[in-house]
Nucleic acid binder design. Structure first.
Length: 670
DNA sequence: TTACTATCATTTTTT
DNA sequence: ATGATAGTAA
């Protein structure tokens, strides 16, 4: 791969800290990978002295593969390419003694946090789900700003905040007791550790001599602080980012961190990558003109030497269901006309719910498609169950896992028994699992209940011992058979088919464990490592990869599309209050919505079509919709407006007829 | 324990 | 309108 002059500059600049402003499609991944190669082959770095951090497992995996291919297995040995969270996890694992955390801690995901918060709130305030989530979000924001509970309590501005801060304190206490950490802790804990312990900081500083950061605009305060602590005052780092693609500020990302770099490192060098290798000229120009409406930290203008390309079509349709049908018939027509593959097409939208109508239309026309951004795998009851077994095997103090599975499948540990066990454990300040075997428990729990919990304890203890001794996968299969989980799924599923599907999910999860153990065979505790990785969703992408070959139309949110590219893109619902979204208008944050639109437009390589509906169902009601301001902000000469030709098939006539009938009926009834 | 009813939310969710 | 999820009644 040949690098252009700017890219070469970015690779060669190693003597001072470097910020690479990498526009969409400008080959930033090539720069990062080539730079790692350069550091190893020309600058005397060992691979194990270099770390590259990303935000997604997928990006980390891709980058690692590319570097390994260029350097070879031997020369790239020990190179760290991981997500921020994974890096944090490794630091915590190595320094757990200094942190007072026991070796086999568990990682809580959002659902675990919610379950825990629900328990905590029962004691004082009682809050509903959305309030609990709001509290958790506030706690997350505090953690991202490196604020500890005491500080949050001290600076609470109102009673509401004070309650949240108090819950934050209780939440952290519980995590400690469960020997668990949440996602934010994976950054927060290492950052505070390095900040407060000079010796440990120096140790890590010596270990990681050069740091590269991808998607730097998405870092939050604690992540930036971690970067600073790891690279020291001299700043032996390269960060790559694009303020125009900052779309996660609502999750604490601070594009301001780009600016802060210049302040914190006066000798910072800045290199801009402005040649775009992805899109046709017209698409690029439109994107540039659109994003020019935002204020900018750094000026840059993307250019492309590809051909100018077809006009951007604006397809105006009457209703949202026409929009869906139109997109699908477009794709079918163009596929046949030009011999495209289904996988050449992407349908992008603002909100997940928008996929519904499109999916219906795709199913009607029997078009294969894939909706990505599905986090549903980990939300599945059977996955949560089995994962809870795995977690409890790794960390017996994980009360959350204990509560989930102590009676799943049913083993006569009911609510009363669990409550008594809980009261006792609480009183003794020990975990539920530990409490099972205490003699003192016998005073609180009588014959049947006691026997049931002890039996459960024995099952888990035996499995745990066997795992330490030998083949974990065999032990897990035995355990699943022993507790009769397969049969349990059949008893609890609505149909045998559903049960089989759920069991297939379980075997999928177990096969991840198997692969994970193989990958970590020479580490100290391959099983525990693998369970942690799964908690960090690290192996989810591996699964997606196999399906990438499939010839399917790609459906996803604009957020999920960042970093991807497609020959032909359909951008849905380019309307006021949808893109920009209503709440963003109200919160006066249209700029981020504009960036979102920018991301969408720059995904397209060859053609782009933007859909606008005149009417759209909102909260069950048909509401008039007007074209987005972003359309006016784009260069009109490059847009080709098309009214809906109503060239509809019989099916569609019936469909639209039906909705007309429905509207009529609604009018009459109201 | 199952099945019904009430309630809820339709903005995004890299970990 | 709609679909999911949580809670409650039989």
């Amino acid at each position: 791969m040949r690098l252009n002059p700017q890219q070469t500059l970015a690779v060669k600049q190693t003597s001072s800290p470097l910020l690479v402003l990498a526009g969409a499609g400008s080959g930033k991944t090539a720069v990062i990978t080539q730079k790692i190669v350069h550091l190893v082959t020309n600058c005397g770095y060992q691979a194990n002295q270099i770390a590259a951090v990303t935000f997604t497992n997928k990006a980390a995996k891709e980058m690692k593969a590319r570097v390994t291919k260029l350097l070879g297995d031997g020369a790239s040995k020990g190179l760290i390419v991981s997500t921020f969270h994974n890096l944090g996890l490794n630091i915590i694992r190595r320094e757990h003694q200094a942190l007072g955390i026991r070796q086999n801690f568990t990682i809580f995901d959002d659902q675990d946090s919610l379950a825990l918060m629900r328990e905590l709130s029962k004691l004082g305030v009682d809050a509903d789900k959305s309030e609990l989530i709001a509290i958790l979000n506030r706690i997350s924001a505090w953690k991202n700003d490196l604020l500890l509970p005491e500080q949050a309590i001290a600076q609470a501005k109102d009673n509401d905040e004070l309650i949240s801060a108090k819950l934050y304190e209780a939440y952290q206490r519980s995590l400690k007791a469960y020997n668990a950490v949440d996602f934010d802790d994976l950054i927060l804990i290492p950052t505070l550790l390095l900040r407060n312990h000079d010796d440990i900081r120096i140790k890590w500083h010596n270990k990681i001599r050069y740091l590269l950061v991808d998607e730097y605009q998405d870092t939050n305060t604690s992540q930036y602080e971690l970067v600073k602590l790891l690279t020291g005052k001299l700043g032996s780092f390269t960060v790559v980012g694009d303020d125009d693609q900052s779309i996660y500020s609502w999750r604490g990302a601070q594009p301001k961190n780009l600016e802060l770099l210049q302040h914190d490192f006066p000798n910072l060098k800045v290199v801009k990558l402005e040649q775009n290798y992805r899109s046709c000229g017209r698409i690029l120009k439109s994107a540039n003109v659109l994003i020019a409406n935002n204020p900018h930290l750094f000026d840059k203008s993307l250019w492309s030497d590809k051909e100018y390309g077809e006009p951007i079509r604006i397809l105006s349709v009457k209703e949202d269901n026409h929009e869906a049908e139109r997109v699908v018939s477009e794709i079918l027509a163009r596929k046949i006309r030009s011999n495209f593959k289904f996988s050449d097409f992407a349908i992008l939208y603002r909100g997940n719910h928008q996929s519904r109508l499109v999916e219906r239309a795709l199913v009607n026309k029997q078009v294969p498609y894939k909706v990505s951004g599905n986090t549903s795998f980990f939300a599945r009851a059977e996955i949560k169950d089995v994962l809870a077994y795995l977690r409890l095997l790794v960390n017996p103090d994980d009360d959350n896992a204990f509560i989930r599975i102590s009676n799943t499948p049913r083993r006569e540990i009911g609510a009363t028994t669990l409550e008594k066990l809980g009261t006792y454990a609480n009183h003794r300040h020990i975990s539920l699992f530990e409490a099972i075997f205490e003699v003192g428990l016998e005073e609180h729990l009588s014959g049947k209940g006691l026997r049931a919990v002890r039996k459960f304890g024995e099952i888990m203890t035996r499995a745990s011992d066997n795992i330490k001794r030998g083949d974990p996968v065999a032990v897990l299969n035995e355990l699943m058979a022993y507790i009769g989980y397969h049969g349990y799924l059949f008893e609890t599923s609505s149909s045998p088919k559903a049960a089989e599907f759920r069991w297939a999910n379980v075997t999928e999860l177990l096969s991840w464990i198997e692969r994970g153990i193989e990958d970590n065979a020479n580490e100290d505790d391959p099983f525990a490592k693998t369970v942690n990785k799964i908690c960090l969703r690290e192996m989810l992408d591996r699964n997606n990869d196999d399906e990438e070959e499939n010839n399917e139309v790609q459906l996803m949110t604009l957020h999920a599309s960042k970093g991807l590219e497609f020959p032909h893109v359909y951008l849905l619902g380019m309307e006021e209050e949808l893109l920009p979204h209503k709440s963003s208008i109200e919160e006066d944050n249209v700029e981020e919505e504009r960036r979102l639109a920018y991301v969408g437009v720059t995904r397209a390589k060859e053609t782009l079509a933007i859909m606008v509906a005149k009417q759209r169902a909102r909260y069950g009601e048909m509401v008039n919709s007007v074209p987005s301001r972003f359309l006016e902000e784009m260069p009109q000469d490059d847009l080709d407006w098309e009214e809906d030709r109503l060239q509809v098939s019989d099916d569609e006539k019936r469909e639209s007829g039906k909705s007309k009938m429905e509207n009529l009926r609604k009018m009459l009834s109201s």
